[in-house]
């Protein structure tokens, strides 16, 4: 009923007014959808090119050669590619664990405690995020070179933990600061001691923030090229470094397979987590 009367009045409005109203209600969704398409065009290309055939000389090609599922059935045909993915996963997991623990501790200190040197602490956490990756990578390299620390997996790990800490602090801090302190006070009023309050109230409430921070840290580490490139030394090849190096010879379609797998894997993981959350709430 209401809709019908609105339509009727709508028709009597002057044309330019109806036009701006139409624009207003459809413009924002249209831009939103265009933005999403823009984000997904390269993903579609990556997925499509994972079915690309190789050139007759066995090299990968940037343009379409022919349809083949070969890359999907023989992902590790070049053992270096799978070794590189393995290295990246290893570095990603280790630096995520270290970065998340260290960053979460700092976030707790910042939100929960009073201490001297708060300003300089905040600045030290903010600065790595305000520093371009070339500068982060090159300054660490300069340090390693001057102290003669051999480049390798250890130096890459050191670098990755360093740049993930700040992002973890910011993410966990946001979650912690949004918590209602009355919940913890209630637990204490009900005779929970500090440990119990932390274990049964604080930690479960902060957990999603910590999980988000860990996910962010892992994706930053797994995807990092610039800082890794500076500090890896000749012996280490992470997945992005492999992609970079293989570009000269033509990126093999297997790289696109791994890109697609990462994408669908992450999507499935996040959607599963969302579903699990929904089921739990019921």
């Amino acid at each position: 009923m209401a809709i019908a009367t609105e339509k009727a009045t709508d028709a009597r409005l002057p044309l330019h007014y109806r036009f701006t109203r139409y624009l207003r209600s459809h413009f924002i969704p249209a831009i939103g959808i265009l933005g999403l398409i823009y984000l997904f065009v390269p993903i579609a290309v990556v997925f499509a090119f994972s079915f690309n055939d190789r050139l007759p000389n066995g090299r990968g090609s940037v343009s379409w050669v022919g349809f083949s599922t070969d890359a999907w059935t023989n992902i590790c045909v070049d053992p270096n590619i799978c070794r590189a993915v393995g290295t990246s996963l290893q570095i990603g997991v280790l630096s995520t664990i270290a970065g998340t623990v260290l960053g979460t501790m700092i976030a707790f200190a910042l939100v929960r405690h009073r201490f001297r040197g708060r300003q300089s602490t905040n600045l030290t956490i903010f600065l790595p995020m305000a520093t371009p990756e070339v500068v982060l990578g090159s300054s660490l390299l300069a340090l390693f070179l001057s102290t003669r620390i051999p480049l390798g997996i250890v130096t890459v790990l050191i670098a990755h933990v360093m740049f993930t800490i700040s992002f973890v602090v910011v993410t966990v801090k946001a979650r912690l600061a949004g918590l209602d302190p009355r919940l913890e006070q209630a637990a204490m009023d009900l005779y929970a001691d500090e440990k119990q309050t932390f274990r049964y109230i604080t930690l479960p409430l902060v957990a999603p923030g910590i999980a988000a921070a860990a996910l962010l840290a892992f994706s930053l580490s797994f995807d990092d090229f610039i800082i890794t490139y500076f500090n890896k030394g000749p012996s280490i090849t992470t997945f992005p470094v492999y992609v970079w190096a293989s570009a000269a010879r033509g990126v093999p379609p297997q790289v696109n397979v791994i890109g697609s797998l990462m994408f669908f894997g992450a999507l499935a993981l996040v959607l599963l987590a969302q579903l699990a959350g929904k089921v739990k709430r019921r």
Partner: peptide, 9 residues
Amino acid sequence: APFFCSFLI
């Protein structure tokens, strides 16, 4: 999600 497909790729 697109971020999980490496940025070089």
